[in-house]
């Protein structure tokens, strides 16, 4: 297993390298000029040109690339062209809201969706099954921002139980953190509950028809033990895959939810950087995101071995 992990980590290095080259070139080919954002609407062409020179944007692309990649290899993602703040610092400021929201969403989704999916499979064709599947379709269909606004209207505006917006770090206390994280978590969970519940139902349904489940039942094992120990564990591989990719998607930014609840996460950081053509920030974000995807995929693969002893690397 250790050898496998080392091989996977080493294999990630060329992947990251290709991502770095691709992103760098793509950004330089996209129309846009950070100097224009800095200079503002009244700047003359000469002033724009002078700012471009001072930012090093007139250097040949290969020179810019090697300067940037040299810094990245030393752990320096550069400085924002627009705000002059180090990219690492900007990402550091934004990572906590994103990670908090991703974790709370994925935990809530698993806690709700997995039992729902198992029950729906167990009661296949019943009203309970149909109810769960209908709710699942609803969860997929309603746009996230609509759910967000409805929750804000009910719990923040009408009932005044929770704040409308914002984020408080856990370091400022559990309740301030929780009261601001609850609505965005609920909002985002709708779609993930729908997704995981459907996947769990389908996977468990497949397994329930297997011979070993029939054997377990024939041996008189209690139904809950059949479902949890025999069916769910064997159905877990596809469910874990969905949870893993869902988590990666949440980490890489949920810009609509972040906007509706005014959460200063990395989704908004990325979108703002793209709109301003803030190259170092975009490059840093994409490198970080691709690294996270590699890591999460690795963790999913490791999880397979823990859940299914037949899988060995």
């Amino acid at each position: 297993m250790f050898g496998y992990l080392v091989r996977r980590v080493l294999a990630a290095i060329p992947v990251m390298g290709v991502v770095a080259v691709f992103v760098f070139l793509l950004l330089r080919l996209t129309p846009g000029d950070p100097a224009a954002i800095i200079a503002g609407d009244q700047a003359s062409p000469e002033q724009l040109e002078r700012i471009r020179i001072s930012l090093g944007l007139n250097e040949p692309i290969y020179t810019q690339f090697f300067t940037w990649i040299g810094k990245v290899l030393r752990g320096d993602l550069g400085v924002s062209l627009i705000s002059q703040v180090p990219v690492v610092q900007m990402i550091g400021q934004r990572i906590e809201p994103t990670v908090s929201l991703a974790l709370s969403t994925i935990i809530l989704s698993i806690v709700v969706a997995v039992p729902l999916g198992v029950i729906a499979a167990w009661k296949h064709g019943s009203l309970v099954d149909k109810g769960v599947m209908s709710l699942s379709v609803l969860g997929f269909s309603i746009p996230v921002f609509v759910i967000g606004y409805i929750l804000i209207q009910i719990f923040a505006i009408e009932l005044k139980w929770l704040p409308v917006q914002g984020f408080r770090s856990l370091s400022r206390g559990l309740w301030p953190f929780f009261e601001r994280a609850l609505l965005p978590t609920l909002t985002l969970s709708f779609i993930y509950i729908a997704l995981i519940a459907r996947m769990t139902r389908a996977a468990v349904l497949d397994v329930l028809g297997e011979d070993y489940v029939r054997t377990a039942r024939a041996k008189g094992i209690a139904e809950h033990a059949v479902l949890l120990r025999h069916a769910l564990r064997n159905a877990a591989v596809p469910v874990i895959t969905v949870i893993g990719t869902g988590f990666a998607l949440l980490i890489s930014g949920v810009v609509v939810t972040e906007s509706v609840f005014n959460l200063p996460g990395i989704g908004r950081l990325t979108v703002d950087a793209v709109l301003a053509r803030d190259y170092p920030v975009i490059q840093g974000m994409i490198l970080l995101t691709s690294g996270l995807y590699v890591l999460i995929n690795l963790l999913i693969d490791v999880a397979y071995t823990l859940l299914d002893p037949r899988i060995r690397y």
């Binding site: 606004y149 409308v164 917006q165 914002g166 005014n262």
Partner: peptide, 18 residues
């Protein structure tokens, strides 16, 4: 100065006193 990309959220926040 707080940045709020969504205007509706800003309006809600003003009306709720945040």
């Amino acid at each position: 100065w707080i940045t709020m990309p969504d205007a509706q959220t800003a309006v809600n926040a003003l009306m709720s006193g945040e």
